[in-house]
Amino acid sequence: MKLTHNGIVTSIERIKRDYILLSVRIDDPPVFNPGQFMMIQISDAPNSYDPLLLRPFSIFREHNRVYEFLIKVVGRGTQAIADFRNGRRILVTGPYGNGFPAIVTPHPVIAAGGAGIASVFAFVQQLHSKGIAYELLYGARTSGELILPELMKQYNPLISTDDGSRGYHGRLTGLLKTRIKNNSTIVACGPMPMLKSVKDIAVRHGIKCYLSLEARMACGFGVCLGCTIFDVEGNTKRVCKEGPVFDAREVSFGRQADKDH
């Protein structure tokens, strides 16, 4: 399968103040697993190399060769993407990484915190289309920060907001505790402190749990070793290759994790 693609930007939709939905048409469309990601070129190399590196984004959705990425604008690169024009040609590489495991039945509980929804959405969509029962828990600080509420509605999310402006009042992990059963499998993506609590909950209940992690990446395909993390046994794992989805039992939330987030 080809892993380097010439993409054409077909639309950039502003969603709220700091989110965009980027659509890129790829003529040689690769198959992907939900939870896999692609690297997106930002500069128009070889004329300019600033910003230098491609940026990793989960595949949000794919339809008729158009790949969508739900992107939170957090810095220079993502701001530059927000300023893309339709028709721009960009290099897109991937899909990379492992993606979510195919079988998480009988009771999958998907917990998405903030921008974490971007990474789990394709997985939710897959379960939905296969008719597999699941629960989607989706949390944000305020109701105003919930992304694409209309789209999400189809997947019957249970909402939590830190300020109680919608749904469960409190943290997503608080809501999670009320939903899990002995036979649940948790799939989570969100900020590191949230993932740490999710892991604690899973361990305490002795249930399976998968976490989708992020790390700074230079290559995305396993050669730079920039995204290496140390697991609980101190072994090295590349987030781009062995991850980004890890069994929560492997994931160590040390100094390193706190520092980058």
Binding site: R216, M217, G226, T228, I229, F230, T236, D260
Partner: peptide, 18 residues
């Protein structure tokens, strides 16, 4: 060798510190 703790990558103008 296991290498250094992260972050291990920092982009700079037209460059990369690893």
């Amino acid at each position: 060798r296991k290498g250094n703790p992260g972050p291990r990558i920092k982009e700079t103008p037209c460059g990369l510190i690893n």
